[in-house]
């Protein structure tokens, strides 16, 4: 029996005031397990990013709870939550947010440096992860010299360098061509996923649905269906 990695319970989020007030997420609940790639799909504006942010501890829900590996994250203080993210969650943002003024390897080392690791040690470790994503020879270049797919892999290296349990990808393939997107997803499935990790992916991109273990559909802030693909296989 797989261990529950993420458990979201009745999450609600409102934005705005008065007439402009929108219910971005309406009582969303779901569970995702370790060892799973969990997809969150739905039309634009359906609340995917909002839900993902509440799960990963960067946006406080109006009500409901999030439990990650038995820690109720929204009961933590601000600093505890920052530490929790630093130690347990890896992020790959849609447009990567790599520092153009740092080298690729320095970008990858950032989570380790935030964890107060010695600089040289952090750089060595980051190099190992760049090797895993196949970009060791690009280590000293600034990220903007790399192609989109390569930058995506740098962002992945940065997300996994601190060995988090939960990996969060927002639209990982949106700005990549079909082949590159598939390559990235199969890389995640083969190299990054393991039985102690849960990978959460938000996407529009139906070309990569084949890599999912579970696909949760959202519409207008509410969860409509959760399809378990791995059981079908």
């Amino acid at each position: 029996m797989a261990k529950t990695a993420i458990s979201a319970h009745q999450l609600v989020k409102w934005f705005g005031e008065g007439d402009a007030r929108t219910n971005a997420v309406k009582a969303a609940s779901f569970e995702a397990n370790f060892g799973e790639i969990f997809y969150l799909v739905g039309p634009s504006g359906s609340g995917k990013t909002t839900l993902l942010s509440m799960i990963s501890g960067i946006l406080k829900p109006d009500s409901g709870s999030v439990t990650i590996d038995s820690t109720a994250i929204w009961t933590l203080s601000k600093d505890e939550l920052a530490d929790f993210r630093l130690n347990r969650i890896g992020f790959v943002f849609q447009d990567y947010h790599l520092f153009p003024r740092l080298t690729t390897v320095e970008n990858v080392a950032i989570p380790l440096i935030l964890k107060q690791r010695d600089w040289d040690e952090a750089i060595q470790e980051a190099l190992r992860y760049l090797e895993i994503v196949g970009l060791k020879d690009r280590a000293q270049l600034p990220p903007f010299k790399l192609s989109g797919g390569e930058q995506q892999r740098v962002a992945i290296a940065r997300a996994i360098v601190s060995q988090p349990d939960i990996l969060i990808f927002d639209e990982p393939t949106a700005s990549l061509d079909g082949d590159t997107g598939k390559k990235i997803m199969s890389f995640i499935k083969d190299e990054i996923l393991n039985e102690n990790r849960c990978v959460l992916v938000v996407t529009h991109d139906s070309r990569i649905f084949e890599y999912a273990d579970k696909i949760m559909k959202m519409e207008d802030g509410a969860v409509t269906t959760i399809e378990n693909k791995s059981e079908v296989k």
Partner: peptide, 11 residues
């Protein structure tokens, strides 16, 4: 980028 640092866990 500072926002990304915050998300990653910078205090």
């Amino acid at each position: 980028k500072f926002g990304a640092l915050k998300a990653i866990g910078a205090k």
